[in-house]
Design a protein around this nucleic acid. Sequence first.
DNA 1: TATGCTAATGCAACATTGTTGCAAAATAAT
DNA 2: ATTATTTTGCAACAATGTTGCATTAGCATA
Lengths: 138, 138
Amino acid sequence: MRYGINETLKKNQLSVTDSRKKILELFMRSNGALAHADIEHQSGTEFDRVTIYRTLQTFVEKGIIHTIPTADNSVRYALCKDECSEGHHHDNHVHFMCDDCGTTYCLDHVIAPQLSLPDGFNATRTDVVVSGKCKNCE
Amino acid sequence: MRYGINETLKKNQLSVTDSRKKILELFMRSNGALAHADIEHQSGTEFDRVTIYRTLQTFVEKGIIHTIPTADNSVRYALCKDECSEGHHHDNHVHFMCDDCGTTYCLDHVIAPQLSLPDGFNATRTDVVVSGKCKNCE
DNA sequence: TATGCTAATGCAACATTGTTGCAAAATAAT
DNA sequence: ATTATTTTGCAACAATGTTGCATTAGCATA
Ligand SMILES: [Mn+2]
Ligand SMILES: [Mn+2]
Ligand SMILES: [Zn+2]
Ligand SMILES: [Zn+2]
């Protein structure tokens, strides 16, 4: 089960502010990942652009959200699992980006495979991003 | 075996210009991927920034180079295999980005795995980007 | 090799995205 | 309630990428 908004902020030693509450709420409501621009639009003129950047940065550092690499090199964010914490992400699941609607999903149950790399290469992290058509755009 | 510079340009119906020759040469010489900024630096003040952008775009369209998604969402490019052509890339190999030196490698012999996705999701492309320490930075 | 057509380039201007410093405001601690 | 600490908004800046248009270079053909 997922924590509530204020709970999550306090658990991570963050002061509870309007922008943090609102942005975290947007993530919790959304079924896909969010880009900076999505948040800017969905929160109206409520917050400054810079505040959104800083909030996202803080959330990533605390392990509340994670970034998603995409084939078009746009930056997207999605909620982490509860086990993630400051400096320790455990988001080794696969991501899917729909070519039609652009929605980016965390496929929580599809885990990135172990790969055997050439000699001398040592992996600390493996990101898998799949593109194609999502369940709504078939 | 790989084609020469003029050969590659002509094969793709591109006129042979100074900027295209120089930029293609940089890719052929480099062992890793190149970012726009790398090319800008390595070619001095020889070409306009815009020309570099347009050349990279053209090369991608023709299947001469491909883009590489990276964990830090910076845009990088590397040479395609000879089998790639206009609109048809066949670069399903894994990419590796070194956390130390930043070099990005095409691991031509490590192929992205087939994954079984949830119902309704259809993959057309799978990008795998591995981070860690490369053979020079161990 | 010279000529004309077409495509590529350079430049200027603009758009988007992200960063930094600092004073004002909001939050948390006492 | 008062104070100390964090966060915010604003302005200014930096980096990255895009577009329109006049000039230039490459290419085909005579
Ligand atoms: Mn995810
Ligand atoms: Mn590659
Ligand atoms: Zn879709
Ligand atoms: Zn390295």
